[in-house]
Amino acid sequence: MKTVYVDGKFLPWDKAVIPVDDLAVLRGYAVCDIIKTIGGHPYCLDAHIDRLLSSAEKVGLTPVWTKAEIKKIVFEVLEKNAPMDEANIRILVTGGSSPDFFSPADNPRLIVLVTDIPALPAQWYTKGVKVITFVQQRSIADAKATNYIPAVLALKKAKAQGAVEALYMTPDKMVLEGTTSNLFALVDGTLVTPEKGVLKGITRKTVLALGEKLFPVSEQDLSLDTLLSASELFITGTNKGIVPVIQVDDHIIGTGMPGPGTRALMSAMADQVGRSCNSPSVI
């Protein structure tokens, strides 16, 4: 049985609980981050913890743990769950117990758990996927909060239409990001990704760095019309990596197959991950 870290204790999975007066339960007031292991080592751990702490600050949570302390707990949880195949590491900072069931009392809780990484269909990468658009924006775009009700509703609609992701879009049709992914487009040979109003993923940062070696790169607003006229699209995420998009709503993108630019970036990403596997000290 897996071991979970909850509020200062390492507990069996079925004993890992938090009080019902925690604001994460009562109000959905918490932040989170997810890290995958590569070769058994957390990939980009520092960047993920930095984002976790930044998210907490942006929503008004005051973590009482240092970055070094969180890293130590992550490695302890991995050790206590060994041996296991590659894993997702989920870290949450909750709002803590509240005397009036609404206001934070500066007593956040830290939760760290590991789960197996779900296998994604190989055809996503060889044939591409369909996504839909969904009018929605994050309330605090650059904070990874646990309030995923809009995402759940958007993904439910996407699945009903045979799509794997929903792209958030403003009422004036500026496309932002996916529910759990960032968005990239190749527009007239330039790699474009939205800059404002999005949660800037760790994989997004990696793709931008890799993309600069292959194309002109621009972080800018991206209208639906520009998106639909792009020669190639793809989404990125911690578990997804780079996933080619060949259809948005009822519109076919480019040739309807993963394009050469997307495939080149997928290859560059695979090379970087391979180097990380061989040099865990750089992760």
Rank of each mutant, 00 (worst) to 15 (best):
M1N: 14
V6C: 13
F10A: 09
D14Y: 10
V17N: 11
V17E: 14
P19R: 12
A24P: 02
A24S: 15
L26I: 12
K36W: 00
T37M: 07
G39C: 08
D46A: 15
D46C: 10
H48F: 06
R51T: 03
L53P: 03
E57V: 04
E57W: 05
K58I: 06
V59E: 01
T62R: 14
P63A: 08
K71T: 13
K72D: 13
L78M: 12
K80S: 10
N81H: 11
D85T: 13
I89Y: 02
V93C: 07
S98F: 06
F102L: 14
S103I: 04
P104H: 02
A105F: 12
P108W: 01
P108S: 10
I111C: 09
V112M: 07
P121E: 14
Q123D: 15
Y125W: 09
V129N: 01
K130F: 04
T133F: 04
F134R: 02
V135P: 03
R138C: 08
Y148K: 10
Y148A: 07
V152E: 09
L153K: 07
A154P: 01
K157R: 14
L167M: 14
M169I: 11
K173L: 15
L176T: 03
G178C: 10
S181V: 03
A185Y: 00
T190R: 12
G197H: 04
T203C: 02
T206I: 14
L208Y: 05
G211N: 05
S218P: 01
D221S: 14
D221N: 14
S223M: 06
S223F: 03
D225A: 15
S229E: 13
S231F: 04
T236P: 05
K240E: 07
K240A: 14
I246Y: 05
G254F: 02
G254S: 08
T255M: 11
M257R: 11
G259C: 13
L265C: 09
V273D: 00
G274L: 00
G274D: 08
S276F: 04
S279H: 15
S281M: 11
V282Q: 14
